[in-house]
């Protein structure tokens, strides 16, 4: 009798330990996938912002070329053109890079919490970056990001930076993600709004560049007749090489939305959809990365 009670107790304890381990492992897996998704979204967003700069420089060059080609009084054209983006300057790009750093450091910190990571070098590096973010937020350097409906990006960055610095004081990943859901939503909403406006700019540039080449093809056709087929080929090749496809913005914003939903899932790990919601982030992030790697 005593032996059977002992065996039964061992079984109950083992099952309980297994269940706890399984839950722990699931939390680890969710945090790791969230981290991977967050990095993918941040990389895509950064690639997009670089595209905004590239599109401006390409268009600025061909705008000058078009003006030269259509004005016969103009005798000089400088083939070597040093571009200094004004639409999204390098300084403005750096501010956005730091905002994306806040998101990826936050995701890294969540993973470190679930791993019980004790990497002091990593801690020190992320803490330094977070302190820099806090200082920038205090100077309201993130205020330019967002629109009327989105306020408090500085406060949102500050909250996330504080968590990164003091994350050991909030060891439960669900509590941390629940508390930072609002700040993350604020940052994502600001980025999405900006992406839409930048997408408008890209669309305008795409059409402007196409118009310039279309005009050249039209004149070539009038002057060269059937031989203008070669001009059409060249124009097509050039546009294919030069144009930045603005439709990518939609996928980028879908991935950003998935990031917010996945964070909410981390805050509610017992919900039935938690794991699948985080899988959606991984999928959409991967799709965004593929699009932006494939595009110019």
């Amino acid at each position: 009798m005593r032996i059977s009670v002992f065996v039964a107790s061992i079984c109950v304890l083992s099952l309980s330990a297994c269940s706890t381990l399984a839950r722990y492992s699931e939390t680890q897996s969710n945090a790791a996938r969230f981290d991977r998704g967050a990095h993918a979204v941040a990389a895509s967003e950064m690639a997009f912002l670089h595209q905004v700069q590239n599109a401006e420089c390409t268009e600025a060059y061909y705008k000058r070329a078009y003006a030269y080609a259509t004005d016969t009084r103009d005798k000089n054209f400088d083939l070597v053109f040093q571009c200094h983006p004004t639409e999204l300057t390098n300084d403005q790009l750096q501010i956005r890079l730091k905002l994306l750093n806040a998101i990826t450091l936050y995701a890294d910190s969540l993973t470190a919490l679930t791993n019980g990571s004790n990497e002091t070098q990593l801690d020190s590096n992320s803490s330094d970056v977070a302190k820099n973010l806090e200082a920038l937020a205090a100077k309201e350097k993130f205020s330019a990001i967002g629109t009327n409906t989105i306020a408090g990006v500085n406060a949102a960055v500050s909250s996330i930076a504080k968590f990164i610095i003091e994350r050991r004081e909030e060891p439960k990943i669900a509590d941390a993600s629940a508390r930072l859901q609002g700040p993350l939503e604020t940052i994502v909403a600001a980025l999405k709004a900006e992406n839409i406006d930048d997408g408008q700019g890209l669309k305008s540039k795409e059409t402007a560049l196409t118009n310039d080449f279309a005009l050249a093809v039209r004149v070539a056709h009038e002057q060269r007749g059937p031989a203008s087929l070669l001009d059409i080929y060249q124009a097509h090749e050039a546009l294919d090489h030069l144009i930045v496809q603005p439709q990518d913005v939609g996928q980028l914003n879908v991935a950003l939305d998935a990031l917010v939903s996945a964070n909410s899932a981390l805050a509610n790990p017992k919900s039935a959809e938690a794991s699948s919601t985080i899988s959606i982030l991984v999928r959409e992030g991967r799709a965004a990365v593929t699009l932006f790697k494939a595009s110019k």
Binding site: T86, E87, L88, D91, A144, D197, Q200
Partner: peptide
């Protein structure tokens, strides 16, 4: 388009 670029520049200013 030039005007649009300037609007985006102003909007992005920090």
């Amino acid at each position: 388009d030039t005007c649009l670029s300037q609007l985006l520049h102003a909007k992005n200013s920090a």
